[in-house]
Design a protein around this nucleic acid. Structure first.
Length: 280
DNA sequence: TGCCAGGCTTCAC
DNA sequence: GTGAAGCATGGC
């Protein structure tokens, strides 16, 4: 167990942010997360202090980057124009959230099966996939299952995948696994290909469109300017910005901004209130 | 019970 | 190129 004082870090908000689907509250308090084959427990001790159930070595090798601890989360506030009351409110509400750096394969599969599902349903599907096809591991008497590898999923029929409540998305996941195994998708190449080229490659895959591609770019490949537009974001852009959000103001931080918008819209009674911005 | 969800593919035009 | 239809399933 190690202890860290981290500014702008709120594990409850991170767990509820809809970026990852394997971070859950523990009955005893705190949260667990399974990522990169590891199991971790995090507890908020107050005053910016958190405990992590790992060694310093593991924290430095995996979790510091996973939680994006080397990025500056204070600069975004100064980018927001004073008259953008919506984004000011969203930032205040979401302060402490982090843009997670996840395993791109897990992000790809998770967001392929996210389409036309709500977050509880996505989590149920992801967990079913892991329960059925993930490798079993043990940490300190806790038995858990890792996210299934592409190699494992490439050997599963669509019919069997569908038992994990994938619905019509079964064929998309099966094809992604097949392409990954065939070497037709290489995440190391996509990470350095540049935003447009990487996005075009992802959109060429069966079952991946604009939105899912942007999620993979943002959460799995480190492209901070990806801006996934789901149903919630589209409603916000229409309601607060008359359909024209000034993306040019947030170069390098668009993904972060999008995440604050999403979290605020989904987590509050925002949908029931009048627009905070004037669109005229 | 009906609507909607971190959308995408297919097809008609 | 654009727009509508169809899609599996579960949460609320």
């Amino acid at each position: 167990m190690i202890y860290k004082d981290i500014p702008d870090f709120d594990i409850a908000k991170i767990a509820d942010s809809g970026q990852c689907f394997r971070m859950n509250p523990l009955p005893s308090g705190g949260y667990s997360v399974i990522a990169f084959g590891r199991y971790l427990e995090i507890r908020d001790l107050g005053g910016g202090r958190n405990s992590f159930s790992c060694t310093e070595e593991e924290f430095g090798a995996i979790w510091a980057d996973y939680f994006d601890l080397n990025s500056d989360y204070t600069g975004v506030a100064s980018m927001i124009p004073p008259d953008d009351r919506f984004l000011q409110a969203a930032l205040d509400y979401g302060r402490g959230m982090r843009l997670l750096h996840q395993d791109p394969w897990e992000v790809m599969v998770s967001f392929i099966l996210s389409q036309r599902k709500n977050i509880p349903a996505i989590k149920a599907s992801v967990e079913a996939l892991c329960d059925r096809y993930g490798k079993e591991a043990i940490w300190n008497h806790v038995t858990y299952r890792c996210f299934p590898s592409a190699e494992r999923l490439a050997g599963i029929s669509c019919g069997d995948l569908r038992t994990c409540s994938l619905g019509y998305r079964d064929k998309y996941v099966a094809e992604a696994a097949r392409q990954f195994e065939a070497g037709q998708i290489r995440f190391d190449e996509l990470k350095t290909a540049g935003f447009d080229a990487a996005k075009a490659s992802l959109k060429g895959m069966y079952g991946i469109g604009d939105k899912v591609a942007d999620c993979i770019l943002l959460f799995g490949l480190g492209y901070g300017n990806a801006f996934p537009e789901d149903t919630w974001i589209k409603k916000i852009l229409e309601k607060e910005y008359a359909g024209h959000f000034p993306k040019e103001l947030y170069d390098g931080y668009l993904g972060m901004v999008q995440q604050y918008m999403f979290y605020y819209a989904r987590s509050t009674s925002y949908a029931a209130i009048a627009p905070l911005n004037s669109c005229d």
